[in-house]
Amino acid sequence: MDDDDLAARLKAFEGRRATVAGRGKDPVNLPMIRHWCEAMGDTNPAYTGPDAIAPPTMLQAWTMGGLSGHTSRTRAYDDLLALLDEAGCTSVVATDCEQEYPRPLRPGDEITFDTVIESVSARKTTRLGTGYFVTTRTDIRAGGELAGTHRFRILKYAPRKDAPARGPEEPRPAERRPRAVVNRDNAGFWEGVARHELLIQRCTGCRALRFPWLPGCHACGSPDWDTVRALGDGTVFSYVVLHHPPFPAFDPPYAVGLIELAEGVRIVSNVIGVPYDEVRIGMPVRLEFRRYDEELVLPVFRAAGEAA
């Protein structure tokens, strides 16, 4: 099929329903809320006690079908993905999600939901390959009242073919590191990094520190905050060693650490200054800023006592 025919067939899926009258397999309940909060390290008192609410970001958890799935699912979404497979877009990556929370969910709420294929983009060329962005919208209700909206977007694409081999007189240019998504909630952090400052948010209500940056306090809910500059001392709280997948902007294997700063918050960053297989939990590290190209500076952590 030609590109115009494919585009028309893809557009015909917009507005089709992927789930009709779906039901949550469990009502909103305190055990699931507790497990979620423990996994996230979220100690907000709003999620415990007789007047508990569910963390808003749990929204999608109440609609998941588990291994057995949902009987309310239609064939529309599967047919759309099959059409993209037929067109050579056989790979998929989740790109982002957006959520809205009109009202809190509380233990005992029975969940119903409907999902619609909201949009299929025109053909796009990305670093991964050429394909189409598919967005679904799930409206989640409690007692018939809209409680949340979850938009989920994937890229279904044909993987990019390897570039032709270059001769010795044509060295392969270095790939640039991926850029962070800068928005109104985290712009101040990146402005600080550009000045070689690691800034931590501090609630002006309860004085709790938080990282990564958020629009409101996880402890008291206040939207007001200022910042403190991290001293730069930390320890490796946990870490992983990345071997795969290979990506030209990186040089595996390398260590990525969850660094606990002296101020008590944690940040994910590279551990440098020692071989990847010598990184250990509890290892003291020290903040430094590394320039990767003419635009990008990132905070990294060097093993304490190791020379730059």
Results as ranks from 00 to 15, higher is better:
residue 101 Y to H: 04
residue 101 Y to M: 07
residue 101 Y to R: 01
residue 102 P to K: 00
residue 102 P to Q: 00
residue 103 R to A: 06
residue 103 R to Y: 01
residue 104 P to A: 15
residue 104 P to Q: 15
residue 106 R to W: 01
residue 106 R to L: 14
residue 106 R to D: 14
residue 108 G to P: 05
residue 109 D to Q: 01
residue 109 D to G: 02
residue 110 E to G: 04
residue 111 I to V: 02
residue 111 I to E: 04
residue 111 I to F: 01
residue 113 F to V: 04
residue 114 D to N: 14
residue 114 D to T: 04
residue 115 T to W: 00
residue 116 V to A: 04
residue 116 V to M: 09
residue 117 I to C: 12
residue 118 E to K: 08
residue 118 E to F: 08
residue 119 S to C: 13
residue 119 S to W: 05
residue 121 S to T: 13
residue 121 S to V: 14
residue 121 S to R: 09
residue 121 S to Q: 12
residue 122 A to M: 10
residue 122 A to P: 09
residue 123 R to M: 14
residue 123 R to Y: 07
residue 123 R to G: 15
residue 124 K to Q: 09
residue 124 K to D: 05
residue 124 K to I: 08
residue 124 K to T: 06
residue 125 T to E: 09
residue 125 T to N: 11
residue 125 T to C: 11
residue 126 T to N: 02
residue 127 R to Q: 10
residue 127 R to H: 12
residue 128 L to V: 13
residue 128 L to D: 14
residue 128 L to A: 15
residue 129 G to Y: 06
residue 130 T to D: 01
residue 135 T to N: 13
residue 135 T to I: 13
residue 136 T to M: 06
residue 136 T to K: 05
residue 136 T to C: 03
residue 139 D to Y: 09
residue 142 A to P: 03
residue 143 G to H: 00
residue 144 G to D: 01
residue 144 G to T: 02
residue 144 G to F: 00
residue 145 E to T: 02
residue 146 L to K: 01
residue 146 L to R: 03
residue 147 A to S: 10
residue 147 A to C: 10
residue 148 G to I: 04
residue 149 T to C: 04
residue 149 T to G: 08
residue 149 T to S: 03
residue 150 H to E: 09
residue 150 H to A: 14
residue 151 R to N: 12
residue 152 F to K: 02
residue 152 F to A: 09
residue 154 I to T: 07
residue 155 L to E: 03
residue 155 L to S: 06
residue 156 K to G: 04
residue 157 Y to H: 06
residue 158 A to W: 00
residue 158 A to R: 04
residue 158 A to T: 11
residue 159 P to G: 00
residue 159 P to Q: 03
residue 160 R to F: 06
residue 161 K to S: 12
residue 161 K to D: 12
residue 161 K to Y: 07
residue 162 D to L: 12
residue 162 D to K: 00
residue 163 A to C: 04
residue 163 A to H: 00
residue 163 A to L: 05
residue 165 A to I: 10
residue 166 R to H: 02
residue 167 G to N: 00
residue 170 E to M: 13
residue 170 E to A: 15
residue 171 P to L: 04
residue 171 P to S: 03
residue 172 R to E: 12
residue 172 R to V: 14
residue 172 R to Q: 11
residue 172 R to C: 10
residue 173 P to V: 05
residue 173 P to C: 11
residue 174 A to K: 02
residue 175 E to N: 08
residue 176 R to S: 14
residue 178 P to W: 07
residue 178 P to V: 10
residue 179 R to Y: 08
residue 180 A to G: 15
residue 180 A to S: 14
residue 181 V to C: 13
residue 181 V to S: 12
residue 183 N to W: 04
residue 183 N to D: 10
residue 183 N to T: 13
residue 184 R to M: 12
residue 185 D to S: 14
residue 185 D to P: 15
residue 186 N to T: 00
residue 186 N to S: 08
residue 187 A to S: 14
residue 187 A to R: 09
residue 187 A to G: 11
residue 187 A to V: 15
residue 188 G to E: 05
residue 189 F to G: 10
residue 189 F to A: 13
residue 190 W to F: 15
residue 190 W to H: 08
residue 190 W to V: 12
residue 191 E to W: 07
residue 191 E to K: 14
residue 192 G to D: 03
residue 193 V to P: 00
residue 195 R to Y: 07
residue 196 H to L: 13
residue 197 E to W: 03
residue 198 L to A: 08
residue 201 Q to T: 07
residue 202 R to Y: 09
residue 204 T to V: 13
residue 205 G to P: 08
residue 206 C to E: 06
residue 208 A to R: 04
residue 208 A to C: 11
residue 208 A to W: 00
residue 209 L to Y: 05
residue 209 L to D: 02
residue 210 R to T: 15
residue 211 F to N: 07
